[in-house]
Simulated scan of single mutants.
Amino acid sequence: MPYALFADDRQIGPNLPTEAEVWKQALDASLISDLPVAGEAGGLVLPARYHVKEIREEYCAPDPAWKLPDEIS
């Protein structure tokens, strides 16, 4: 599943394949000064309002019988 950077509930970064790549993007954007280390307790890493979240995209296959109309009235 891809991950992305969010401000409140709005996605502000592109979908990236791993959470580590999102953290690197936050580092490159100067939102953080150092990457977090797994398993280490620490304070707030990202500024308030910002967070990394897994993107759960839901896909559905289109109905093969559905077609666009020939004309728009």
Rank of each mutant, 00 (worst) to 15 (best):
T18H: 02
A20W: 01
R56F: 05
A65N: 10
E19L: 13
L16V: 08
E57N: 12
A61I: 14
E58G: 14
T18A: 03
E19K: 07
D34I: 11
A48F: 12
V52I: 06
L68E: 15
Y50L: 03
K67I: 00
L35A: 08
G39D: 09
W66Q: 14
W23H: 03
E54N: 10
Y59S: 09
A61Q: 15
I12S: 08
P17T: 15
A7H: 14
Y3F: 11
P36I: 05
G42Y: 01
A48V: 06
A65P: 01
Y50H: 04
D70K: 15
L35K: 10
V52W: 00
L31M: 03
P69M: 04
P62Y: 01
Q25T: 05
P17S: 14
V37W: 01
P36N: 07
E54G: 04
P36M: 02
A61V: 13
E40C: 12
W23M: 04
A48G: 03
D70Y: 12
P69G: 03
A65K: 12
R10D: 07
V45N: 11
G42R: 03
P64K: 15
P69Q: 04
E54Y: 07
H51M: 06
M1A: 10
V22L: 08
R49E: 12
Y59V: 08
G42S: 10
